[in-house]
Write a protein that binds this DNA or RNA. Sequence first.
DNA 1: AAAAATATGTTGCATTTACAACAATATTAT
DNA 2: ATAATATTGTTGTAAATGCAACATATTTTT
Lengths: 154, 154
Amino acid sequence: MKDCKLHYTDSIHYELEQTSRLMKKVTTQLFEKLEIGLSIDEYAALDTVSVNAGICQRDLAKLILKDRANTGRILDSLEQKGFITRFIDTKNNRLVKKMGITERGLKELDTINKKVKQYLESVTKKISDEDIERVQETLKSFRLELEKVVEINI
Amino acid sequence: MKDCKLHYTDSIHYELEQTSRLMKKVTTQLFEKLEIGLSIDEYAALDTVSVNAGICQRDLAKLILKDRANTGRILDSLEQKGFITRFIDTKNNRLVKKMGITERGLKELDTINKKVKQYLESVTKKISDEDIERVQETLKSFRLELEKVVEINI
DNA sequence: AAAAATATGTTGCATTTACAACAATATTAT
DNA sequence: ATAATATTGTTGTAAATGCAACATATTTTT
């Protein structure tokens, strides 16, 4: 049945989407099993805020690649749980909502990282660090190429 | 602000999810621009059926990694457009819905492939074939590891 | 033979997600 | 100075997605 043409299930597009989808599933299940009170998206946002203190919402949206609407909603939840604080400030003379992680947020982040670390490592330990790194680098240049082509308006 | 811990935006999880999301966006925009009358998911299903004649719905769901419900809906659409035919058959003595691609479906698939090919190649041409292949292989073993861990019930 | 478990597909619903429209403010162009 | 454009965030809505429940039929267990 197979011919020499490149079919969907043989493409890098397929491999990427499937792996990414699976990874998300694994992580979601892990978060549920460990009874972590945050969604993965909330965790990703919290972690990103923790290393980018004073970032504004739109810039965060670009980093976590959600649109502005969803980023705002995720932050609402994190703020309501007391893990971040938001404050009005200016960036290029424009009013923006900046944010920072709270003490409680830092503590929570640390707890989650400790809980999750060994589980996530068990998934990647079968693959050599070199391979992981190489994949990550290639993916990044791939992603940067994609960014040139895609029309995003965040 | 950065410390030596591995943060979300430095992880392979991040790189995978972002690249995959971007790729989907690029492909969706491409399909719209070229006025292709199928969604990417429909295209993926159609292409997969074309190389797996007589596959049943559940097995297809496993390949395209959608759940049974969505796979059924995608196939409804493809059948309604006349690109596949479905028929009842048995597999291990159980009644299943099998399917095959129609003449029209084959023609459509060919048209889409011709339209899309050069555009998709332009995205990956900046990256060497070796790198692409290596990434694909590593992703596959990564995905297989993930499959051992995740609980799927399709 | 009856009951329990398994395989397959469909339906309904709740969540997630993206996109468009809007509001408010600041900058740039005319 | 006034109008047009750009930046940022919020709200509303429609589409996609996954999950649980159901329906049907078959196999396995008791």
